[in-house]
Amino acid sequence: MAEKRKLQKAETRKRIIAAAIKVYSEQGFSVPTVTIAEEAKVSHGSIFVHFPTVESLLICLLDSFSQSINNELQSLSESSGDIEKLLNMHINVLIQHEGFYKRLIKEAVYLPEEAKNTFIAIQSIVSIHFLQALEYEISAGKIKAVPFHMLFNTWLGLVHYYLLNGELFAPQDSVLTRYKSALIECFTALIKQ
């Protein structure tokens, strides 16, 4: 009986998380929790059984996104430091979470402090792999002599610009899927000597 209850609880938590990702992606982070409860088909109160505050729900989503990026990019550092391969994997992970990530970069400045810091932590994970992939080429003088953070922020800036203007570049479509090759080719052409 206790086991059944535990499973049910885990299932409800899973449904709340899936609903929150969907609702936040579509309507933004200021959407009331009652909308998430309706989407998850759970009572409004059960959201707070699992997540005492709205912020804790948001942090849970960000932590899970962070874990997903970390797992995905970790496999690259085991193989080789190939920048094109890394950029490709980075975009692939973002495609899996495109709606949520787009909302995140759009509303990041309005998020609570801890959520903002978790977002920085996510970019920090990406930057570790970015640095590992570029280190050899930087020391071999194959990359233009600009500060590392400028290389990283230029890449993010490019990706974020296309994401934020997705309706113009790829209406009704995944802008990252459509522009993946173009973005990678353009960025690598810009940074190589």
Binding site: I120, Q123, S124, S127, I128, F130, L131, H149, N153
Partner: peptide, 12 residues
């Protein structure tokens, strides 16, 4: 590391 890779201000 954060300053080096993301260029953030030290406080942030």
């Amino acid at each position: 590391f954060i300053v080096k890779t993301q260029g953030l201000a030290r406080e942030a």
